[in-house]
Amino acid sequence: MSVSATPVRSDLQILPLDARVVLYVTTLAFKPFKEVLEEDVMVANDIEGVRRTLAAYCQLMDDGDYGEAANLFHSDARWTVAGVVYNGITEIRNLVASWPVPDGIKHLTFNSIIDVDGGLATAVSDYLVMKATDIGGVAIRAGRYHDSLSRSASGEWKFSERENRGSSFVRS
């Protein structure tokens, strides 16, 4: 005997991503539960991989390890900093090589909204750059990163495009 399943409530599909557990009720009518769960685990792993790249960028920049930070970009990546576009890994490496080694700098990335579609991802994140002073940490820059990333052949997520949209808090 064949059983034809129909969605219990198709209106559940309008719920935000955080409500995926509820969506299983609807999705089960079309896919086995195990397959749906495996897909969600893969997406969660991809999102965590993107988050890892975002965090690695901050830590490498704080440590002054600009060469490794540049390795987070694909060879044909595009990076926009202060309205200036740097195309390709050579221009990106030259840019970061021109920067002084940071002293008491801390990059913070937060409020990231990450969307993954197969081997491609976008992320929009707020950032804050702090500098140590005699009176404590002071914010010297804040803004928002707009990123496009893709999975490399080795499985790591790397920047295809990165745009820094921000402003300095330092008075001139």
Rank of each mutant, 00 (worst) to 15 (best):
residue 124 V to S: 02
residue 112 S to D: 06
residue 36 V to W: 13
residue 80 T to S: 15
residue 166 G to F: 05
residue 70 A to M: 02
residue 63 D to W: 10
residue 22 V to M: 08
residue 36 V to E: 09
residue 110 F to E: 06
residue 53 T to Y: 01
residue 94 N to Q: 09
residue 134 D to A: 09
residue 77 A to P: 13
residue 161 E to F: 09
residue 139 A to T: 11
residue 139 A to E: 09
residue 73 F to C: 14
residue 17 L to S: 07
residue 39 E to S: 11
residue 163 E to T: 15
residue 50 V to P: 05
residue 119 G to Q: 14
residue 59 Q to Y: 15
residue 105 I to P: 03
residue 54 L to K: 03
residue 34 K to E: 14
residue 109 T to V: 12
residue 103 D to C: 00
residue 9 R to A: 07
residue 17 L to D: 12
residue 143 G to P: 10
residue 81 V to Y: 15
residue 35 E to W: 01
residue 100 P to A: 00
residue 148 S to I: 12
residue 22 V to W: 09
residue 65 D to Q: 13
residue 147 D to V: 00
residue 24 Y to H: 15
residue 112 S to W: 01
residue 14 I to L: 01
residue 142 A to F: 05
residue 144 R to Q: 14
residue 136 G to C: 03
residue 138 V to R: 12
residue 45 N to Y: 12
residue 77 A to D: 11
residue 155 G to V: 05
residue 11 D to N: 10
residue 111 N to P: 01
residue 115 D to I: 05
residue 47 I to E: 13
residue 103 D to V: 01
residue 30 F to D: 14
residue 6 T to P: 01
residue 87 N to F: 00
residue 122 T to G: 05
residue 153 A to S: 12
residue 172 S to A: 09
residue 68 E to D: 15
residue 6 T to K: 11
residue 103 D to K: 00
residue 76 D to K: 14
residue 172 S to E: 12
residue 83 G to V: 00
residue 168 S to G: 06
residue 11 D to S: 11
residue 167 S to L: 05
residue 56 A to L: 10
residue 137 G to L: 14
residue 39 E to N: 13
residue 128 L to Y: 03
residue 129 V to M: 02
residue 35 E to G: 01
residue 106 K to W: 11
residue 79 W to A: 14
residue 109 T to S: 07
residue 144 R to N: 09
residue 82 A to D: 10
residue 152 S to Y: 05
residue 81 V to I: 13
residue 158 K to N: 07
residue 25 V to E: 15
residue 89 I to T: 11
residue 46 D to E: 12
residue 88 G to A: 05
residue 25 V to P: 07
residue 56 A to F: 05
residue 76 D to N: 15
residue 133 T to K: 06
residue 25 V to W: 08
residue 93 R to M: 01
residue 127 Y to K: 06
residue 107 H to P: 00
residue 1 M to C: 02
residue 132 A to R: 12
residue 35 E to F: 03
residue 118 G to I: 11
residue 95 L to G: 10
residue 42 M to C: 01
residue 87 N to L: 06
residue 127 Y to R: 04
residue 115 D to G: 04
residue 77 A to H: 09
residue 128 L to N: 04
residue 48 E to C: 10
residue 44 A to G: 09
residue 69 A to Q: 05
residue 88 G to I: 08
residue 23 L to C: 12
residue 121 A to P: 04
residue 39 E to V: 08
residue 152 S to Q: 08
residue 89 I to W: 11
residue 92 I to W: 02
residue 107 H to L: 00
residue 23 L to Q: 14
residue 104 G to S: 04
residue 135 I to P: 00
residue 115 D to A: 10
residue 52 R to T: 15
residue 136 G to F: 04
residue 71 N to M: 08
residue 68 E to Y: 03
residue 115 D to H: 13
residue 92 I to Q: 03
residue 50 V to M: 03
residue 84 V to Y: 00
residue 56 A to Y: 03
residue 145 Y to L: 04
residue 71 N to L: 07
residue 7 P to G: 12
residue 71 N to G: 12
residue 63 D to E: 14
residue 38 E to K: 08
residue 66 Y to G: 01
residue 132 A to T: 11
residue 82 A to I: 06
residue 91 E to G: 04
residue 163 E to K: 15
residue 125 S to F: 02
residue 86 Y to P: 06
residue 18 D to Y: 01
residue 83 G to I: 00
